[in-house]
C-alpha cells in the first residue's frame, strides 16, 4: 500500500465534520413494504456521535434496506428517521409526514456518506475525479481546493499514485478505498457501509477494513453492515442483530462472542465465526 497505513483521514477533510446533535441517528419504529412484502417491521435504532454500530443478520433480513432508508434511498411507510437532527425524507405537515422536496432530500444526503457493496464508482471518471465530483458540483467547492483535498484523501487511503487511474484499472480493494474517499470528501456527519468487503477477494478485505478501522478510531460516526466480526470486536461500540425485518438482539461485541441469547443469533454466529 503506497502512502503507508491509513492515517489522518478526517484531517484531510479539515477535521471531524460538525454534528449538530449528540444523537446522530434516531430511527423510530421504521416500517417498509416492497409491495406486499413487509421488509422492515418496526426497526428502532439510535446512534450517538462517534459511535460505531455493526449490523449483522442473515441474507434477506433487511440490513441493506434499513441503511438505505437512513439516507432515503428507500421510502418508508411508517415511523420516522432523523439524522443529525433533521427528519430524513419527510417533513411534518399538520402532524402528518409527507415526502420532502427532492432538493431538501438531496441536501440531507450530503451529510450522510454511503459505501456500497459493489463500490459504484463512476467508471467514466478517474479516481480523483470520482472523489471531487460531488464537492465541486454539489458543495460548490473551488476546483483547486477540491483537488487538494481529493489528493490528500487518496493519499490517506494509500492511493496517491492511483489518482489518475480509472476504476476499471483498479483492484476491488482499491476501488472500495476510492469509494470511501469519495464519500468522505463530502464531509459527512455519518458514514453508512453496506457489506463493504463482501464483494472483495479475501486478500483485499484487510486493506479496506484498515481504512474503516482508522476512520472509526478518528471518531467518525458509522453504521456498518458486515459479517467481519474481527472488525466488530476491534472498533464497534455496539452490534445489532437483525432477523426478518426486526432487531432481535443488541449488545457489545463481547456479548455476541461470549453470551448471545437469541437462538437465531446463536445459529447465525455459528455459521459466520
Amino acid at each position: 500500500m503506497s502512502g503507508g497505513a491509513p492515517h489522518d483521514l478526517l484531517d484531510a477533510i479539515g477535521g471531524a465534520p460538525p454534528t449538530t446533535s449528540d444523537v446522530v441517528v434516531e430511527a423510530r419504529d421504521v416500517h417498509k413494504w416492497f409491495g406486499r412484502l413487509h421488509v422492515l417491521k418496526g426497526v428502532s435504532m439510535s446512534v450517538r456521535r462517534q459511535e460505531v454500530v455493526v449490523v449483522i443478520g442473515a441474507s434477506g433480513s433487511g440490513k441493506t434496506t434499513f441503511i438505505r432508508c437512513l439516507n432515503h434511498l428507500e421510502r418508508i411507510q411508517k415511523g420516522r428517521i432523523s439524522v443529525n437532527g433533521h427528519l430524513i425524507g419527510y417533513r411534518e405537515v399538520n402532524g402528518k409526514l409527507v415526502e420532502d422536496k427532492e432538493r431538501n432530500i438531496a441536501a440531507q444526503r450530503q451529510e450522510i456518506g454511503m459505501v456500497f457493496q459493489r463500490f459504484n464508482l463512476f467508471p467514466h471518471k478517474t479516481a480523483l475525479a470520482n472523489v471531487i465530483l460531488a464537492p465541486v458540483q454539489v458543495r460548490k467547492m473551488p476546483v483547486a481546493e477540491a483537488v487538494e483535498m481529493g489528493r490528500a484523501l487518496l493519499d490517506r487511503v494509500g492511493l496517491a499514485v492511483k489518482a489518475d487511474a480509472y476504476p476499471g484499472q483498479l483492484s476491488g480493494g482499491q476501488q472500495q478505498r476510492v469509494a470511501i474517499a469519495r464519500a468522505l470528501a463530502m464531509k459527512p456527519a455519518l458514514m453508512l457501509f453496506d457489506e463493504p468487503t463482501s464483494a472483495l477477494d479475501p486478500e483485499m478485505i484487510g486493506e479496506v477494513l484498515e481504512v474503516m478501522k482508522e476512520l472509526a478510531r478518528e471518531g467518525m460516526t458509522m453504521i456498518v453492515v458486515t459479517h467481519e466480526m474481527g472488525f466488530a470486536r476491534e472498533v464497534a461500540d455496539r452490534v445489532v442483530m437483525m432477523d426478518d425485518g426486526q432487531i432481535i438482539e443488541e449488545g457489545t461485541p463481547e456479548h455476541f462472542f461470549t453470551s448471545p441469547t437469541h437462538e437465531r443469533t446463536k445459529a447465525f454466529l455459528s455459521k459466520i465465526l
Binding site: N71, L73, E102, R103, A106, A107, R109, Q110, I112, G113, M114, F116, R118, N120, L121, F122, L133, A134, Q137, V138, R139, R182, A183, M186
Partner: peptide, 23 residues
C-alpha cells in the same frame, strides 16, 4: 446504466438533474 450509479450520485447529495447530467 447500472442503477447503482444513480444511487451513488444521489447518496453524494446530487439532485436528479445533476445525477443525470454528470453520471
Amino acid at each position: 446504466v447500472d442503477p447503482g450509479q444513480a444511487e451513488a450520485a444521489k447518496s453524494l447529495g446530487m439532485t436528479y438533474p445533476q445525477s443525470m447530467r454528470l453520471v
